[in-house]
Amino acid sequence: MKQAFLVVALAVAACTAATSTAQAQEDVDKAVDKGLAAAFDNRMFAGPPGAKAYACFVRRYDANHLAQHPKQKVGTMKLLVSAEDAPEDETTNYSFRLGVTYRHRSGNFDSSGFCNHALATESGHEIRFECGVDCEGGGISVALSKDDKSAIARLASIRMWNRNKPDDDAGEALLAGADDKIFRLDRADSRECAELVTDRKELAALRHK
C-alpha cells in the first residue's frame, strides 16, 4: 500500500511540475504581441481560425532522404495543429497531435498536448508554437516556412505512445539524436491527419474541412 501511495504521489508531483511549466508558458504567451500572434495564426490556418480550425502537415521520408540521414529514427511523421475558441475564457486554445512511424520497428506511435505562442529565441521576433505534453512529457516547437507550405518541427524529447498498447507503460521518449532534431513537414489536406483524432465529433468536423 505504501509503495502504491508513493507511486501516486510521485505522479502527482510530476504533473504539478508540468502544470507550473504550462503556467510559465502562458505567461510567455501573454507577452507576445497580439498582432504578431494573430498574423501567425492566419499563416498557420490559412486564414483567421474562427471557432475551430485545423492545420495538417505530413512527411513520408523516401529512401534517398533516409540514405542521407542514416541515424534518423523517424520514417513518417504527421502533425495536426488545432485552434478552438473558448468563449468562457475569451481566448483561443491551441493543441497538437503528433503521429510517428519508425524506420526500423513496427507500430504507430502518437502524442498530444497544448500549445502557446512564443518568440523564437534565435531571431527574437519570429513567432512559433511551443507545445508540451503533460507530466513532463517533453514537447515540440512548430514554426512555418517562409512560403507557409511547410511546418518546421523541432524537438529535444517528446513522449510517444504505441497506439496498439493503450496503457501508461507503452509510453517512451522520442529523443532528438543526430538526425531527429528538426523535421520539415509538408502542408496537407486535414483529412490526411484524421487517424490522429479519436473523438468522433471532432473526427467528423475534421473530415468536413
Rank of each mutant, 00 (worst) to 15 (best):
C131P: 00
E126P: 00
L185D: 01
A53N: 02
A38L: 08
K149P: 01
M160I: 04
A11G: 12
A188L: 04
G75M: 06
I158A: 04
L185C: 01
A17D: 12
M77V: 06
F45A: 02
R187C: 06
D110I: 09
G124A: 07
R128A: 08
D85C: 01
Y61W: 12
A176P: 00
D147T: 09
A67E: 07
S123I: 01
D169Q: 13
K209D: 13
C193N: 07
L196E: 00
G139P: 00
R97N: 09
T101G: 05
Q68P: 00
G50L: 03
K73S: 12
A151H: 04
E136P: 02
M77I: 13
L119T: 14
S123N: 12
M1P: 08
A120P: 02
E172H: 15
Q72S: 08
D189R: 13
K34G: 05
A17N: 10
R163V: 14
G35M: 05
I140F: 10
D134V: 11
S141A: 13
A170C: 05
F57A: 06
T91E: 10
S112E: 12
A63H: 10
A18S: 15
A204F: 12
E136W: 08
P70I: 03
A24S: 11
S82H: 11
D147E: 06
L206V: 02
D169W: 10
A46K: 15
F45M: 01
R159W: 09
H69E: 11
Q25A: 15
E130G: 09
L196G: 09
A176S: 12
R103E: 02
A24T: 10
V12N: 08
R97L: 11
R159E: 10
S145P: 02
D186A: 13
A83T: 00
L6G: 04
V133Y: 07
D167S: 08
H65N: 05
L185T: 09
F129D: 02
A86P: 00
R200Y: 09
L155G: 04
A4V: 12
K30N: 14
G124F: 05
D169F: 11
Q23R: 08
V7W: 09
R105S: 15
R187V: 11
D147L: 07
L203V: 03
S145Q: 01
R200A: 15
E126A: 13
L10M: 14
A38F: 09
H65C: 04
K34S: 11
C56I: 03
D189F: 06
C193T: 05
D85S: 14
S20T: 12
Y61E: 00
K181S: 10
G138T: 06
A31M: 06
A63V: 13
T92L: 06
D199V: 11
K30I: 05
S106C: 01
L10K: 15
S157D: 06
L98P: 00
I152T: 06
S95H: 04
V32D: 01
V8K: 14
G99C: 04
V32A: 05
D167G: 08
H69F: 14
